[in-house]
Amino acid sequence: MSAVDYQIDGQAYEGWYLPAAGRTNAPLVIICHAWGGLGANEKQKAEIISKEFGYNAFALDVYGKGKRGTTQAENEGLMYPLVGNRAELQKRLAGGIAAAKAHTGATKTAAIGFCFGGLCVLDMARAGMDVLGVGSFHGLFRPAENIPQPRIKAKVLIEHGWNDPMATPDDVLAIAREFAGSDWQLHAHGLATHAFTTVGATGDATQYHADTDRRSFAYLKTFLAEVFA
């Protein structure tokens, strides 16, 4: 896995790239990080995408090179300004997609994301970015105020923990209405809370759940095979 420096509007960003294991001309899966910034969890998922799924994996950096959070306050300070300014977030996402495609030369691209990254990939779909499909894992569902009536072209997979306090049953119904008319699917996992794919997460609201992690990635593997067919 190698670091990749890229720029958007003169600002430096540092992503991570892992080529497809044993394949050439493989499709590309972009990975969007959780609220703390690009770190160990995204790199672990990149290993799965590359070695088990056989796709190129490129983890984006949405915050900027060297900008990472280690506490709740730091994470909130990095995430909330972008959640509140979706046009800026979408600009960074589009720039990251362009950098990843330029670095890999891939012609077929999908994106997955976790927590804040789940919101990021849903915004990629909302904004009609250059991705064939997106997968949101324990993502935030807050709509993008700058896209009041999105026209979703990408296929959409949502893997959701039913006990996630950051995405309530009302939020699930709301995103189903928002994405009506598009090719979306949602799997709700009854024993999962937030962060169910984040190895090491503990707590009442954010907790790793091995069975849900395994099942959700089995769904993802099938989804990506369909998207890239």
Score class of each variant (00 low, 15 high):
T109V: 04
G54W: 10
T198W: 03
L132C: 06
Y219M: 12
A3G: 05
I112N: 13
L220C: 14
F196M: 09
Y219Q: 12
Y6A: 06
L93M: 07
G135C: 14
E74C: 09
G39T: 12
L78E: 08
N146F: 00
G128I: 05
V227I: 14
M79N: 03
K65P: 04
H160P: 07
T212F: 07
A127N: 03
A127K: 02
V227H: 06
K91V: 00
I31H: 12
V29N: 11
Y219N: 14
A188Y: 04
A188Q: 11
I97E: 01
E52F: 14
L78C: 08
N146H: 02
S50W: 11
I175A: 04
A127C: 02
G64R: 04
M129H: 05
F223C: 13
A205E: 13
W35Q: 13
K155S: 14
L140G: 03
H189N: 13
V29Q: 09
S2M: 12
Q149G: 00
D5R: 03
F116T: 02
E178K: 12
A174T: 06
K65F: 09
A192E: 13
W16G: 01
V131E: 13
T206H: 09
I49A: 12
F116S: 01
K221S: 15
G113R: 02
L28D: 03
D211C: 02
A144Q: 01
A201L: 11
S182W: 09
T109I: 03
A102Q: 04
A125D: 08
S50P: 11
E145R: 00
Y219R: 15
